[in-house]
Structures are given as C-alpha cells and as structure tokens.
C-alpha cells in the first residue's frame, strides 16, 4: 500500500516542475515625458551588438505610462539598446500623435528581474509635421 502511494507521489512530483527557463530578464517600468506618463507607445530592448551581446528583441507596449514585458519575451541581460516611441491620442486626430522622436539610449540589464524607469528628456524635439 505505502509503495503505491510513494510511486504515485513520485510520478506527480516528476510531472510537475519541468518548466524550462529561457534565461531572459522580465522587465517592467514607467515611461514619462515632461513629468507625465506617456499614454501609449512602444519600448524595444535589444542586445547591443557593438558590445558583443546577442539575443532576441524584447518589445512591449506602453499603456498609460507603464510597460511590462510578456512572460516569454524578457530582455537579454547585459549591454542593451533601448528604443522608446511615445504617442497620445487627440480628439482632432484619428491617429495617435507622436510626442517625441524615437528616443534611443544604451543601458545595462541585470540578470533575474529588472525595473527600467525611463524619463524621456524634454529636449527630445517634437517631430516636424
């Protein structure tokens, strides 16, 4: 009897907890421009090839000033290039109106978990029309 239970427990234990980790870092953060949250946009985190870093792109939408990477699409750790696009919806326009040109900067992403708060500099000029 006890043998049966032990076998059953072992079978359960081996079938659970076999999930692979892809080695990517989940990233979340706030995006602000001129002190207020960016309503919509994209944050793309890519490995910096010039620093020899490799890996997939992590692309997340900004929703009400916050972006969160999807579970299967974390960012690579190490040297990365971050691209930020921000826009807002205005009543007079059908399309989202860009708030600033694509803002690019380099940074480091640690292993494990990361928080990346981005304050887009105000001197990022408003795109010409």
């Amino acid at each position: 009897m006890q043998v049966f239970i032990v076998v059953a427990v072992l079978a359960l234990a081996t079938s659970v907890g076999c999930q692979k980790s892809n080695g990517l870092t989940p990233v979340t953060g706030r995006v602000t421009f001129k002190g207020s949250p960016v309503p919509m946009g994209n944050v793309s985190i890519e490995p910096d090839a010039s620093q020899g870093n490799k890996g997939p792109q992590c692309r997340s939408s900004i929703i009400n000033g916050v972006f969160t990477s999807r579970p299967e699409f974390g960012a690579v750790s190490g040297a990365v290039i971050v691209d930020v696009e921000g826009a807002e919806q205005r009543a007079e326009s059908e399309y989202p109106v860009p708030l600033f040109p694509r803002y690019t900067f380099k940074t480091e992403i640690p292993k494990g978990k990361a928080t990346l708060d981005i304050a887009v500099p105000e001197d990022a000029k408003k795109p010409k029309r």
């Binding site: 919509m40 946009g41 994209n42 793309s44 997939p56 792109q57 992590c58 692309r59 997340s60 939408s61 900004i62 999807r70 699409f73 696009e85 826009a87 919806q89 059908e94 399309y95 989202p96």
Partner: peptide, 24 residues
C-alpha cells in the same frame, strides 16, 4: 525588422474597434 512574434497584439481577427487607437 522586429523579432518573430514580437508584437503583443493578441486578437488578430480584426483591427481594434477604436481605429488606430493603440500603438500595436
């Protein structure tokens, strides 16, 4: 240009009802 499956846009049956209200 952007990575495979990199867009987090989920419902691909039609465009968002609000028009292009989201950047996705």
């Amino acid at each position: 240009a952007n990575g495979i499956n990199s867009s987090d846009f989920v419902d691909t049956s039609r465009a968002p009802a609000s028009g292009c209200g989201t950047t996705t």
